[in-house]
Simulated assay, not measured.
Amino acid sequence: MSPRHGFSKLTVSSVTLLEGLGVEGDAHCGVTVQHRSRVAADPSQPNVRQVHLIHTELFDDLATAGFTVLPGQLGENLSTRGVDLLGLPVGTRLTFGDAVITVTGLRNPCQQINDFRPGLLKQLVSQGEDGRTVRLAGVMGIVSRGGVVSSGDPITVTLPPAPHFPLTRV
């Protein structure tokens, strides 16, 4: 989490999720949009980007490509392992103890990633074989039930009722 609008976040052993708001003490916590570019466009938009999650397998892939990236450095609030975050449908509920995050969509990586590590953006956004944009920088969600999430907590994945809709950028 980070109390200021910056790129990377502090690594902590636990965070408190506040229902309908996000991560306690994080600059992106709020009912309405908190990301500066979105606030400039329309500050009354609902905050569907309360929590940013990244699968740690991405860090492994980036290391293979020559980029050292540690948890929190891409601005995520939670890092997971063993969950195919990018393959989840919209509305999937991720339960960490008592806390529940509902997945709203994909993070849309921006130029700040290249400011952090030159060339990194090309590793996180590419074109698929079908010509569609592929985004690998994690997923966004809202806090549906608050609680404390600690390092090592198991994650329960609950898919929404069918039909399932693929994640798009939010």
Results as ranks from 00 to 15, higher is better:
2 S>Q: 14
2 S>W: 01
5 H>I: 08
8 S>Q: 08
10 L>E: 15
10 L>V: 10
10 L>G: 05
12 V>M: 07
12 V>K: 06
17 L>W: 10
27 A>S: 13
28 H>V: 02
34 Q>E: 12
35 H>L: 14
36 R>F: 14
37 S>T: 12
37 S>Y: 09
39 V>S: 06
40 A>D: 15
42 D>R: 15
46 P>C: 02
47 N>D: 09
48 V>W: 13
49 R>K: 14
54 I>H: 01
56 T>C: 12
61 D>V: 02
61 D>R: 14
61 D>A: 15
66 G>D: 13
67 F>W: 12
69 V>T: 03
71 P>V: 07
73 Q>D: 14
74 L>K: 03
76 E>F: 05
78 L>S: 04
80 T>Q: 01
80 T>Y: 00
82 G>N: 07
82 G>I: 02
82 G>M: 08
83 V>F: 10
86 L>H: 10
87 G>W: 13
89 P>G: 10
92 T>Q: 04
93 R>I: 01
93 R>V: 10
94 L>P: 01
96 F>P: 00
96 F>V: 05
97 G>L: 02
97 G>D: 06
97 G>C: 03
100 V>M: 05
102 T>C: 11
102 T>V: 15
103 V>L: 02
104 T>Y: 00
109 P>F: 06
109 P>N: 09
113 I>D: 11
114 N>P: 08
115 D>N: 14
116 F>Y: 15
117 R>Y: 14
117 R>V: 13
117 R>I: 12
121 L>H: 12
122 K>D: 14
123 Q>E: 15
123 Q>L: 06
126 S>T: 15
130 D>E: 13
131 G>H: 06
131 G>M: 06
133 T>H: 09
133 T>W: 13
135 R>L: 12
135 R>Q: 08
139 V>G: 04
139 V>R: 05
143 V>Q: 03
144 S>K: 03
145 R>K: 13
146 G>C: 04
146 G>N: 11
146 G>W: 08
147 G>H: 01
148 V>H: 05
150 S>E: 09
150 S>N: 08
151 S>I: 08
152 G>Q: 10
152 G>S: 09
153 D>S: 05
155 I>R: 01
156 T>L: 11
157 V>H: 01
159 L>P: 04
160 P>D: 01
161 P>C: 02
163 P>N: 08
164 H>P: 05
164 H>C: 04
164 H>M: 03
165 F>E: 15
165 F>A: 14
167 L>W: 03
168 T>P: 00
170 V>N: 12
